[in-house]
Design a binder for these strands. Structure first.
Lengths: 197, 197, 197, 197
DNA sequence: TATGAATGAGGTTTCATTCAT
DNA sequence: TATGAATGAAACCTCATTCAT
């Protein structure tokens, strides 16, 4: 018989996570103190620890949530899938994504030395990569192109755009996406475009 | 006139930086304490502060050094340049690079929130990118490909490979490089830059 | 007129005290948190504070209850009294006493620095001691034996057995009791107190 | 090549331990904060942690030191040994012992629930007990007296005096010791006093 | 009556940096 | 030049207690 509704609890949890994400994006995981999260969230220190076992647990929750909302290759025919991927790249240029991107790079760094974070983080990469590879295997790729490797390349094209955008206000997202589009056109359109799933 | 030789001073400085780089690659900048560096380097705490103003200064020195030894696109004809780039990607798979790669990701994260580091770090990316773009401008690129954007894509292909390799022992570097090679072959008609289409 | 019966109130109070005693015996007063008592008792935090003013009050209630059930020297003739004392020592070896003994030592320590606890705790020692001394005064003691001091010695023989038993599974309770019995035999000429030397 | 002498380090360590012992005797282990020790010792918080791994480690060091300086049964003939034991009891009444006694009871309580402390603490009891038992085995004891059990009784007579003295200013130490003396006389002197060894 | 979410002071511990030697 | 003992602010976390429901 909980004292408050599950929705209320979820809202409080969200309040903490949103505050934490903002802090982490701004200052990184290690320059953010629990007090910072407490201040930003307006929730007392003690209460944070009723929702999360500790700072590491907050970080893990943030990382677990940091998956890409859009499915990188979505569903549908080849054209739809390609369009979805390009939209995905386009979203990196959206000013509203800035905090998310910054957070993403923090997560990459944390994943290097924290096995728990690495597991969570890899899931964000491995799952879409596997999906992309599955799609690529159905397509008549140009010779010399390995579907698994090409999937990694496509992920890399996203990851690199992310890093460069985080550091540099001046990235021309439209030109980047346009170039990737041309690139994909040269690779994939070389087969019959009607190749359905 | 200095009491000790410049070479001696440089050697001590190197000793500190090597120890710091090892620690930072292993544990990240923030989980590495000055004590860790002191232990790893065998140099006393007080002395470290005679070579560096503080921890931030050590980090900055490490970041300033973390440029890529190989020139991403080297010099020579197109074929040599492409070969150099592919070698560059290959080096990411070299087990001896592991510590460097880990350090690289730490730097990316630190660059997000530390303007001084960001400046140093961007230089590591912007300079090779500009060089790549300059080369690309001399080549007959397939239609729709913007040299500047394509340069960013090539950098991204490297950056993404780096992240994925850091997280995942199982990256098939040869396949990745092979696929990128095929990709580049399709985009750039090799041969002398002046060769007609 | 109370809303609930006095018996109900008493039962809840008991529930709290039993839980607290179990926690205190296991972890000591200071390593036991109010949350521990809440968990162990199944009674909510708020309600505990309707029965007790605070943690100190719970501790005081526990200490106030921790008197020895058996009367150390009981009543009757000398033989019965001696037999009761020896039974008292025997009870220390009873495995079921273990929690009580552990709690006892915790109380001793708390009594050192908490005047309120000390008062409650001394009552547990002073009362039986006075009773023992009163009995001893009626007996023909061997020369050199002071009844008050001997009463303290008998209490000490119990207290020391308690500590040693708490620390050491291997105490041979029967041998201890047997030796004390022989000792008492040598000191107190049994028989009717009025019996001549 | 230590920066300061071993004697200096030992003196600092002593400074911390003395402060800690004073705090622990006054307030118990758990009501004493590290800040209290810092204040009492005049040594900074950070430095305390260069000497001790943590509060538990300070406690363990205190417990490890809390052995009785006097050998409970000393050496020599029976008379000397008995005299030493009685002196030992007498020392409990010495006002200067007060802090030590209080600390002793805190240790007993901690030993109940802390295995590391229990080991250290038992050594303080088991070693003298074994020594006493060894001596007793060489004596012609009155019938019914088991040397090991009697050793436990003698330890108990000390332990109980300690507790009672801690709680009660009014313990008549001289009477207690006198009574124990009479008691021992009745038990041991019943054999030939010349029993050497 | 009964709940348990909420508070925030205070606990232990770490760590970048300084400075007497 | 070189050491490492020393500092103390600030980090993470716990817990007795309160109070809206």
């Amino acid at each position: 018989m909980p004292k408050v509704s599950a929705a209320y609890l979820a809202a409080r949890r969200r309040q903490i996570l949103d505050a934490a994400a903002a802090c982490f994006a701004r200052d990184g995981f290690h320059r953010t103190s629990m007090q910072d999260i407490v201040r930003e969230s307006g929730i007392s220190a003690g209460l944070v620890y009723r929702y999360f076992a500790g700072k590491d647990d907050v970080i893990a929750a943030i990382v677990g949530e940091w998956h890409d909302q859009r499915q990188i290759f979505a569903t549908g025919g080849v054209d739809e899938r390609v369009a979805a991927y390009l939209d995905y790249l386009r979203s990196v240029g959206d000013p509203e994504s800035a905090a998310r991107l910054r957070l993403g790079v923090q997560i990459w760094a944390e994943a290097v030395r924290n096995p728990r974070i690495r597991e969570l983080s890899r899931r964000n990469v491995d799952d879409p990569r596997a999906a992309v590879a599955a799609v690529l295997r159905t397509l008549p790729l140009a010779p010399g192109l390995d579907p698994d490797a090409l999937a990694r390349v496509l992920i890399a094209v996203y990851q690199g755009l992310l890093v460069q955008t985080v550091w540099d206000d001046g990235v021309d997202n439209a030109a980047y996406v346009g170039t990737v589009e041309a690139l994909l056109g040269a690779l994939i359109r070389s087969g019959p475009p009607s190749a359905p799933r």
